[in-house]
């Protein structure tokens, strides 16, 4: 993929992961080759334990692939990380218990060696519904609140590439809808390239421009579904026929993947 000015696209070529184990090892991700357009939002949907988190971690360069490579624009993931061009939200919020919510968000700035304009952190905390909790330590927050703080931490450095691993897993239904509505506006406005892992079909269709459906372990692409809904999503889009059709396609692909992949999964064991 040719490098463009602005946010980079992602190119995965034969990316695979096999963990060494007795009997030939455990294949977690089957060779994966895909391009992700700059500025687009892609959802990775698949059953639990299928290897989607591993895929995300390899794209972030936190996991060394057994085979294949990742290019972000014309850089390696390590180079992008070195200039703090990406941010990852992990399945576990990974907040440091001795820092306040504000301190945890500010940690990203420190690590990225950046400064933010005054009020940025407060605005972000308000966006994720944590106004009034800036001075609270994570120990006093619910699981969903911690996850939202982790999202705020991801956004504060204004990364070109956003990698979110089940960002709303522990967030309650009402807040989740709100976030699914608000957050994409923010990263779309910035032109951020976003990959997010989820097992919620609705969430995938609501947020993403494109949904990749993965099979059970080892992860393989079962379907690559473009989401042709308006951007930004209008109010009540979940109730439209177009949305329902898309969601149905994703669900069907998931079921298909499970039926086929179950055997592969067994064979791998």
């Amino acid at each position: 993929m040719p490098a463009e000015p602005g946010p980079p696209g992602i190119s995965c070529a034969g990316l695979a992961k096999r963990f060494p184990a007795a009997g030939g090892g455990l294949e977690v991700v089957a060779p994966f080759t895909r391009e992700f357009a700059a500025g687009a939002t892609t959802a990775l949907v698949g059953p639990s334990g299928c290897g989607k988190s591993t895929l995300l971690r390899m794209i972030a360069g936190l996991e060394t692939p057994s085979a294949g490579s990742v290019a972000i624009g014309d850089e390696t993931p390590a180079e992008v990380r070195a200039r703090a061009g990406l941010a990852v939200s992990f399945q576990d919020p990974s907040l440091l218990p001795w820092r306040t919510v504000r301190g945890n968000v500010a940690l990203a700035l420190t690590l990225a060696r950046r400064r933010a304009a005054a009020g940025t952190i407060d605005r972000l905390l308000a966006l994720v519904g944590l106004e009034g909790f800036a001075g609270t330590r994570p120990g006093a927050l619910s699981g969903g609140m911690r996850q939202r703080a982790a999202i705020a931490r991801c956004l504060v450095t204004e990364p070109e590439l956003l990698l979110l691993d089940e960002p709303f897993g522990a967030v309650d239904e009402l807040t989740r809808r709100q976030l699914a509505h608000d957050l994409p506006r923010l990263w779309e406005a910035r032109g951020t390239t976003t990959l997010f892992v989820t097992h919620s079909v609705t969430e995938a269709v609501l947020i993403a421009d494109r949904v990749l459906v993965l099979s059970p372990r080892p992860a393989r692409v079962v379907a690559d579904i473009p989401v042709t809904l308006d951007r930004p999503r209008p109010e009540g889009v979940e109730l439209t026929v177009a949305f329902a059709e898309l969601a149905e396609r994703v669900s069907a692909a998931l079921a298909r993947g499970a039926a086929e992949g179950g055997q592969t999964g067994l064979a791998a064991q």
Binding site: R57, L62, V80, R81, A84, L96, L111
Partner: peptide, 14 residues
Amino acid sequence: APAAWFDVVASYGR
């Protein structure tokens, strides 16, 4: 420290 904390640091290239 949980490995995830080090991932946060690593994800910023530090």
